[in-house]
Every structure is written in C-alpha cells, then in structure tokens.
C-alpha cells in the first residue's frame, strides 16, 4: 500500500520534469529558459526529498539540499548575471524551429521509454519509473545544445543533461554515495562558472556568443 502510494507520488513528481524540459525547448527567451531550469532543479530536489523520505535514506536529504543551493540558487544566478552582463539580444535564436523541436523532443521521450523497457522489467526499485524520464532529459538536453545558437543555451542544455544523469542515478541506485554526489555538484558548479566566463570572453572577443560564427576557427 505504502509502496504503491510512494510510486504514485514519485510518478507525479517526475512528470513536471519532462514538461519543464519541453517548455525549455519551446521557450524563445534565454532568461526564461534559465528560470525554467531553476524550476526543474527545484522539482528534482523535491523528488530527492521524497525518495529520501520513502526509502529512509538520509543522505538524500543532503543531496536535495545541495541541489537546492547549487542548481536552484547559485548556477541560475551566475547564468542570469552573465546574460545581463553581455546585454546581447535575449532571444534564443533557434536552428530548428520551436514546433519541430517539440515534435522531435516528444519523439525522444518516446525513444527513451522504448529503449528502457527491457531494463525496467528487471529493475525493482521504487524509483524505476524515473529512468525513462532521465534518459529523455539527457537526450533533450543534448538536443537543446544542438538546436540553439547562443552559447548560454548550450550551458543550459548541458545542465539539463546533468539533471537527467542525476535522475538516472537516483532511479537506478537511489543516488550515488554522498561523496560522489558532492564531487559532481562541485564539478557542475565550477563547470558552469567556467563556461560562463568562457562565454563572456567569447563575447568580448567576437562580439557575439553565436557559436555559428565560431566556424572560422576550423583549420
């Protein structure tokens, strides 16, 4: 009874993750995308707390807390700061239009459910339904990186991918050991910072963060 309820609640909590990522795909403004990412991270933290509660894993509370601090507060702040600082057009500038992007994303979600089914049959954890969602997040994150021109959106795509990987870890093994989790968070933070600085410098040098313009660099 309790297990079923738990599964139901967790299911409810994972669905917004997908919806939010789809919203990011459809979003045309950088700032809004970052804020949507913030919501997604908050959602993830919530999921973390829920899993921690149902599975009596206290370390997951810590993980959730860290998610809140880093992914909900620090990283979005940095990114928003950079976006404001650069003061370029706030439009996302898509290579692939929003409607087709959404269709492709939907297809990706379908694909992730399709590919994970054989694994799910052998998986007996309460969080098993999170796995397809996590794969979908990774794919959508990558897709965002491909389909968007601005370098900041590449960072957002990467962050979504990271959320997917985080979720995959949560889904299959109820989260990684805290030490590893800590390492990943730290990595992510530093990565986001460095990428932010890089984007800033790209802008300084080329007066654009449109990565399409970087093709000049090839040999």
């Amino acid at each position: 009874m309790i297990a079923e309820t738990a599964e139901q609640i967790l299911n409810l909590l994972t669905t917004p993750l997908l919806i939010l990522s789809l919203m990011i795909v459809g979003q045309s403004r950088i700032g809004a995308s970052i804020r949507l990412y913030t919501f997604q991270s908050a959602n993830l933290a919530l999921l973390c707390f829920a899993v921690g509660y149902f599975e009596q894993e206290f370390s997951l509370y810590w993980v959730g807390l860290l998610t809140l601090v880093i992914k909900v507060v620090l990283i979005p702040t940095v990114l928003l700061y950079i976006v404001n600082k650069i003061k370029v057009a706030r439009e996302v500038e898509q290579l692939i239009g929003a409607p087709s992007s959404l269709i492709i994303s939907a297809a990706l979600i379908g694909l992730s459910y399709y590919t994970t089914r054989p694994i799910l049959e052998d998986l007996y954890v309460v969080t098993k339904d999170c796995l397809p969602v996590s794969i979908a997040l990774v794919l959508i994150g990558l897709f965002i990186m491909i389909g968007r021109k601005k370098a900041v959106m590449q960072i957002v795509g990467l962050l979504i991918m990271e959320n997917g990987i985080f979720l995959a870890a949560l889904a299959t093994t109820l989260g990684m050991p805290l030490a590893v989790e800590l390492g990943i968070f730290f990595d992510l933070l530093v990565g986001a910072l460095i990428m932010g600085i890089l984007v800033y410098h790209i802008n300084q040098t080329f007066e654009t963060i449109d990565v399409d313009k970087l093709t000049r660099l090839k040999g």
């Binding site: 290579l95 990186m145 491909i146 590449q154 990565v211 970087l214 093709t215 660099l217 090839k218």
Partner: peptide
C-alpha cells in the same frame, strides 16, 4: 567537419 558545434553535437 563544419566547425559548427551544433553539427558535432548532432
């Protein structure tokens, strides 16, 4: 080998 990050990502 376009030099475009998007292609590589693709």
């Amino acid at each position: 080998q376009t030099g475009s990050i998007h292609t590589y990502l693709a």
